[in-house]
Design a binder for these strands. Sequence first.
DNA 1: TTGTAAGCGTTATCAA
DNA 2: TTGATAACGCTTACAA
Lengths: 343, 343
Amino acid sequence: VLAIAAREGYWPNSAARSLTTSRTSTLGVLLPDLYGEFFSEVIRGVDQTARREGYQILVSSSHAETESLVSAARAMRGLVDGLIIMAPQDGLSTEISRVSPGLPVVLLNPRGEAGPRDSISIANFEGSYAVTSHLIRLGHRVIATIKGPTGNVDAEERLRGYRAALRECGIEPGPGWEVPGDFTESSGYWSAREFVRQNPRPTAVVAANDYMAIGLMSALRDAGFRMPDEMSVTGFDDIAIAQYMSPALTTVHVDAYELGEKAVRLWLVSSSSEHRSGPSREVLPARLVIRDSCGHSSPPLGGSGPAAPTEVSNPRSWVPSGAPGQTRGGKTAQAPNEDQGAS
Amino acid sequence: VLAIAAREGYWPNSAARSLTTSRTSTLGVLLPDLYGEFFSEVIRGVDQTARREGYQILVSSSHAETESLVSAARAMRGLVDGLIIMAPQDGLSTEISRVSPGLPVVLLNPRGEAGPRDSISIANFEGSYAVTSHLIRLGHRVIATIKGPTGNVDAEERLRGYRAALRECGIEPGPGWEVPGDFTESSGYWSAREFVRQNPRPTAVVAANDYMAIGLMSALRDAGFRMPDEMSVTGFDDIAIAQYMSPALTTVHVDAYELGEKAVRLWLVSSSSEHRSGPSREVLPARLVIRDSCGHSSPPLGGSGPAAPTEVSNPRSWVPSGAPGQTRGGKTAQAPNEDQGAS
DNA sequence: TTGTAAGCGTTATCAA
DNA sequence: TTGATAACGCTTACAA
C-alpha cells in the first residue's frame, strides 16, 4: 500500500492537514517594505532558520499603514502558526491580538514598548551615539547629519543618538546641521548641496544609513572634496559594499540576518513553552566599525577631547593576509581584511 | 447576524476555505538563494504585483539542489495556486509536473529549453556581448573577465556573450583571461591579483556582475591603479549603487523588479485562460549603461575598430539638472543624472 | 495491529 | 430567498 502511494507520488494536502491538526508549519512575515539589502537579509535569516526548524514562510510586505498590515494579518488566519512583524506603527500589539487572538507574535524593532509581546530591536541609539562620539574624539566639532525618513523608528532613534552624543560633549548643533533624507542613495547625493554651502562647513557628516553615506560621498567626490581630509562621512548598517567604498566607509554594523534568525528562535521558544513569564525583549547590538572614511578634523578647533590616535584605523595593504573567497551561502560577508570593531 | 460577526471580529479560516474552493489565493515562490540586491528586487516585484492582484506569496529559498526544490514544491501542495520557480537545474520541468500535476508554473531564467512551461529569462548573452563589444570599440584588445559561479546559468550565458564578442572581432583570448569568481565582492577583490601580474596586462575587465566589479575596483584602487585610464572595469545587473561608484560603473541594466512583476503577470494569464497555445517565452532585455568606468585603451594597439568617441559618456556635473529625492517605494532608482543607454 | 467513524471550518448543492 | 447537508482531504480517537 505504501509502495503504491510512494510510486504514485502521493503527498498529503497541507491545507487539509492543517485543518485537523491546527498546525500549519508556516510562519507569517509582515514587513513594511522589501527595498534594499537590509530587508533582504532579514528575510534570508528568517527563511533559513525557519526552514531548518521545519517551517515555511509566508511573506507580505509594503505595509506602511496599520490598516493594510492588519488586513494582511487577518488573511493569514489559519495559514500560519505565528507572525513575525516589523512595523513602525504604535499600538499595533492590540490590533493584532484582536485579529488573531492567541497567535504567537514576535515584533521586530517595535516603536515604544511593544505591549505584551516578544520583541527584538536594534541598538540604533547606541550605535549612532558611538559613531558620533567617535567623530568627536577625532576632533570634529561641526558635525552634521542626514536624517532618515520621518516616522521611521530606526531613523528617529539614530537621530536621538546623534543629538545625545553632541549634547554630552557640549556641542551646540548649528542651524541646518540636520538635513532630511529618505534612506536612498539619491537623497544622500543631493544632501551634499546643503553641506557645502554652510558656514562654518561641517567637517563630518553622520548619515543615518549606508546608502545615503554612499550617495553623499559620490557627490562630494564630484564636487572635488577630498575624504576624509576635507570631510568625514559615516554610515549605518554596514552593508556588504561599505568596505569596498573609496574611502572604505566607517559605519555601524547591524547584522540583519541575525535579526531574522533571532526572531524565529524567539518565536520558537515562546510558542513551544507556554510558561508565560512575561514577554522577552532582546536587543541586537550595533557595533562601530572604523574604516577610512573619517579622519581628524583639521584644523583642530577645540582641545577638549582626549588625544586622537594618529594612525588610520583600518589601512588596506595591497596583499592582505586574510583568506580569499567566500561562498554566497555564508552568513556574513568575508572582508578583504579584518574590521576593527569598537563599542 | 452579520453585525455580530463583524463585531466579534470574525474572519473565515483561509485553510478551510481553500479546502472547499480549491483556490488558495497564494502564489509560491521558489528561489535558489536570497543573497544580494537582485533576489530582493525579484521578490519585491513578485510580492507587489501579486498582492495587487489579490494573492499572497509563500517564499522558500536556498534550493541549490533539485531535491530540496522538489520537496519544497511538494510541501506547497494545496497551499498555492501556482509556482514561480527560479532554478539553475535542467530537467526541472518534468520533476515539478510529477510532484504537482496541473499546477501552473512560471520558470524564471531557466537553463535550456524549459520544457512545456511558461518562462521568462534575462538577455544575459546579449548584454555581455554588448558590454564586451563596447570595450572593443573603445580600442581595448586585452580584455579579461571574472566569471560567475560554475553551474550558474546567468554566469554561463554571460561568459558566452563575452567570448562571442571577442571571437567576432578576431581577438584570441590569452591564457588567464578568464578568472573564476562567485558573484561576491570579495571574489572580485581577490581576482585583481591575477590581472596585475599578467603580461600583457589586461586594459579592461568584464566582471560577470556588479558586486565583483566593485570588489575589483576597490582592489585596483588599493594597488594604485587609475581607472579607467590604466584599467577599465564593467559590471552586470546595474544595482542601485553602481552609479555612485568612483568611477561610476559601466554595466548592463537588468530590471529585477520587472522580472518578478512579469513572472506574476505571465502566471495570471496562463492560469486564467486555459487556451493552451503553447508555452510563452519572454525575454527581459539587458541594456548597456555607459558610465565612467571604462575609457579608451592607451596606447591603442590596433586600428581595426571604428573611431572611438572622444568624450566621456556620462560626465557628472556638480549641480546636475535632475530632480532630487526619491521615495523608497519607487520601482527604479532615481539617478543623480540621466544614464545614457545604448543597446 | 487494523479498520472505521467523527470532525476540523468552510463552501456548494439541493430541497424546501 | 432560505436552510439543511454533503463534501473538501486529512488526522485522531476509538472500536474491532
